Simulated assay, not measured.
Amino acid sequence: MFITPAFAQAAGAAQPGGFSAIIMQMAPLLLIFVGFYFLILRPQQQRAKAHREKLLAVKKGDQVVTGGGLLGKVTRVEEDAVEVELAPNVRVKALKSTLSDVSGVGTSKPAND
């Protein structure tokens, strides 16, 4: 016999592989996914939550920007829609979900000043 039993057992233990090798191969992928979550997904979720809260808090007198870029003042608030005054005696109904920005009363400066 050329190989003793002790040497054969030691050769099997020193062979690369096993659970630790799988962990070492998966660690970079796991780190990439964790980084992706904290750098891209989480900030986007926070912005969406802040925008949703802003839309739920819209009230009469707020200045709004619609999705089409129209600027106006909220004159009436309903459950899913708002009435926006774009010019004197020009009122349109817009869905709350189409509003892109809401600013409080008096926060914007008039254009002619």
Results as ranks from 00 to 15, higher is better:
P5M: 11
Q45S: 09
A10V: 04
T75Q: 14
K54G: 15
L31Y: 03
P5H: 07
L31W: 05
F19A: 08
Q9L: 13
Y37W: 11
A11G: 04
G35Q: 05
I23W: 09
L70E: 10
F19K: 10
R76P: 00
A57T: 02
I23A: 11
A11K: 15
P28Q: 01
A50W: 10
G67I: 06
A6V: 08
G67H: 05
R52D: 11
Q45H: 12
R76F: 12
K59Y: 03
K59F: 03
Q63C: 13
F33I: 06
T66R: 06
P16F: 09
L71D: 12
L55G: 13
G61I: 01
T66I: 05
E53D: 14
A6M: 11
G69T: 10
A11P: 02
V34Q: 01
A81F: 09
V58E: 01
A81G: 00
K54A: 15
V77Y: 04
L55S: 14
T75G: 13
A50V: 12
L41F: 10
G35P: 03
L55K: 15
I23P: 00
Q46L: 15
A48D: 12
G18M: 12
V84L: 06
K60S: 11
L55F: 14
L70Q: 13
I23Q: 11
L56Y: 02
F36P: 00
H51F: 08
P28S: 04
A50Q: 13
M24S: 13
L41V: 10
V65M: 15
L31A: 10
L29G: 14
A13T: 08
K59A: 15
E83G: 01
P43R: 11
F38L: 08
H51S: 14
Q15V: 00
A14D: 08
L29A: 09
V77A: 00
V82L: 12
V74Y: 03
